[in-house]
Design a protein around this nucleic acid. Structure first.
Length: 566
RNA sequence: UGGGGUGUAGCCAAGCGGUAAGGCAACGGGUUUUGAUCCCGUGAUUCGCAGGUUCGAAUCCUGCCACCCCAGCCA
């Protein structure tokens, strides 16, 4: 689906192509996706994943999956497994699986080497003091009293840090760069801290852990990364990245290139905010179909192909990128339109009785699985005297261009007959509960000799054969386009209609043996995925995305102008 | 008031001194037994603003404005 789209290569691909052409790194290309295993992946990560994996593969290179697991307090194996699942679901396979923790011994050696060179020192300042000594954005920092500690003393102290002789916070290892640097990252950044915590991989082997800048940079350099692709907020870490590579004897010299993160309207992307939604029970979990997480999208019924197509459509740049939901939905529809089999499902049933059709009769109507792809074959749907149609497909007081069923009016039952609404039956409260109709036997689909045409065609299911199921309709999580910047209580920002549960939907019988995860288009409704198979007793279907609905748009505009006139 | 970035249509985004690609959205029209799909068509005299260089500027220079990121022993 994303084959013949013409587009100049983005700025990163241009750089990589130029590097390869110039023979840099012997023409080798190696990238990595380096998540911290402290949460679930979301659509923003999908962008980073696609960039690193696809660029590597386009240049006959390799992409590693490397867990930047340098903060044991926040990390968990649960997350590493979830991340692996998500990356694979997206359709990528890493050349090698690595962990920053694999390099802990080597990293320690390099830290010692830095100390030997007089470019790192052990500092006894407290966290607060370090912050205070760092200065501000506009004022330079001050040197720590420990800055000129002798190399031997630093070596001894660092070794004792590693040996567990000190408490957390008592000492840290700092790079000795420039306390007056205008770039705050260069004001003697902390390289190692003491953490007496079990690490999810190395257990109790270490009690000192490297900081991100040290571990990340040197992991890149150690494993042969050529192009270290990351998001914009690391741009001012690049001088430190380059500094570390310059100081230390590492086998490779990777180049860091930054691009902007992906944001989506009507949702939030930060782990903290997503976690809050989960913790406060706003959603059912990290994989709630309304979440922008990959696991949520998977449950929602999005395909990895659609997600990748979306990522390729939005492109790569350094602009602040906030994409409309419609763009994502367009990619999803494009894929599902092509690949999802069509079925009938009545979401809000209204019973109709075709009085002209014998109680004893029953027919099997042939219905195409895909109107534009005959090779996908067909199934049959049973037809009889009593059917369900969509409640919305009948209107007593219909507006001008409503061409579905109205009292005394006609409509085509798709793959069935033309019917006419003869009588409307209401309950004591005046609600329409049933329609009595007649049909024209000469208008049977496939063998219609009548030559008659009606404006509307609606879907239906046989009341006698229908299988009931629960259908969940999902919509955007927030009602404001940019909840990140919006003011006010989250309560007022959340879309109260982000989930609607329809407990008595009626499905055509062929859906009875649909498998979990199978995707369908319910004609005239949208794309749905099987959350719980009907064979399990209580079937649950999840709406992935609606069909484009130009009628809804017309009606909305009509209402708006009517409202404006009133 | 320091440093690092970014400003091209409603949302993305090409463009790399030779006269504004493409996608999504929107709006017309055609086909249609899904108001779906599909097909055709429509939008920037103008690129944050103001100057300058040039035969020629979104592209180069200067100044200004707006927005984003940075003061974790998080990543």
């Amino acid at each position: 689906m994303d084959t013949d789209r013409e587009k100049g290569p983005d700025f990163i691909r241009q750089i990589v192509a130029a590097d390869v052409a110039a023979g840099k790194n012997d023409g080798r290309v190696q990238t990595r996706f380096p998540p911290e295993p402290n949460g679930y992946l979301h659509i923003g990560h999908a962008k980073a994943i696609c960039i690193s994996f696809e660029i590597a593969s386009e240049f006959d290179g390799r992409c590693f999956l490397r867990f930047d697991d340098t903060n044991p307090e926040k990390e968990d194996v649960e997350f590493v497994e979830a991340i692996k699942t998500d990356v694979r679901w997206l359709g990528f396979e890493w050349a090698e699986l690595r962990h920053a923790s694999d390099y802990f011994p080597k990293l320690y050696e390099l830290a010692v080497e830095l100390i030997r060179q007089g470019k790192a020192y052990v500092d006894s300042l407290s966290a607060e003091e370090i912050r205070d000594f760092r200065g501000t954005l506009t004022e330079p920092g001050r040197d720590s009293p420990d800055r000129n500690r002798s190399i031997d003393e630093n070596l001894g102290l660092f070794e004792r840090m590693r040996a567990g002789e000190f408490d957390e916070g008592q000492y840290v290892l700092r790079a000795k760069i420039d306390m007056a640097a205008p770039n705050i990252n260069l004001r003697d950044p902390t390289l190692y801290r003491v953490r007496k915590v079990e690490h999810q991989r190395t257990g109790g082997e270490w009690c000192i852990y490297p900081m991100y800048d040290f571990a990340h940079t040197l992991s890149d350099a150690l494993e042969g990364t050529t192009h270290s692709l990351c998001s914009l907020e690391f741009e001012d870490h690049r001088p430190l990245y380059d500094w570390l590579i310059r100081q230390l004897p590492v086998p490779y010299e990777p180049q860091q290139i930054e691009f902007s993160r992906l944001n989506l309207m009507y949702t939030v992307m930060s782990k903290r905010k997503l976690k809050r939604l989960v913790d406060e029970g706003r959603v059912s979990g990290w994989d709630d179909p309304r979440m922008p997480t990959l696991s949520g999208m998977r449950r929602r019924g999005y395909t990895p192909e659609a997600v990748r197509d979306f990522i390729s459509r939005v492109g790569i740049s350094k602009n602040y990128q906030v994409v409309e939901l419609g763009a994502l939905e367009s990619s999803v529809r494009e894929d599902l339109n092509e690949n999802a089999a069509r079925r009938f499902a009545v979401l809000r049933p209204l019973k109709i009785v075709i009085e002209s059709y014998s109680e004893d009769d029953e027919e099997l109507m042939e219905a195409a699985n895909h109107p534009n792809r005959p090779e996908l074959g067909s199934r049959t749907v049973p037809f009889c005297r009593e059917l369900y149609i969509e409640h919305d497909d009948f209107r007593e007081d219909a507006p001008k261009k409503f061409f579905r069923l109205v009292p005394g009016g006609e409509v085509r039952l798709r793959y069935g007959y033309i019917i006419k609404c003869e009588r409307v039956i209401k309950d004591a409260d005046g609600r329409v509960v049933e329609l009595r109709c007649s049909h024209d036997p000469a208008t049977r689909s496939g063998s219609d000799q009548s030559g008659r045409k009606v404006k509307g065609t609606i879907h239906w299911v046989s009341a006698r054969h229908a299988v009931p199921a629960e259908v969940r309709l999902y919509d955007r999580l927030f009602k404001v386009p940019d909840p990140d910047r919006a003011e006010g209580d989250i309560e007022d920002l959340l879309n109260p209609e982000s989930l609607e549960i329809l407990s008595d939907a009626m499905l055509e019988p062929s859906l009875a043996d649909a498998d979990e995860g199978e995707r369908f288009q319910f004609e005239r409704q949208g794309y749905f995925v099987v959350e719980t198979p009907l064979s399990a007793g209580h079937g649950v279907l999840t709406r992935t995305v609606t069909l484009r609905d130009s009628w809804a748009k017309v009606e909305r505009q009509a209402l708006a102008t009517a409202g404006a006139l009133a």
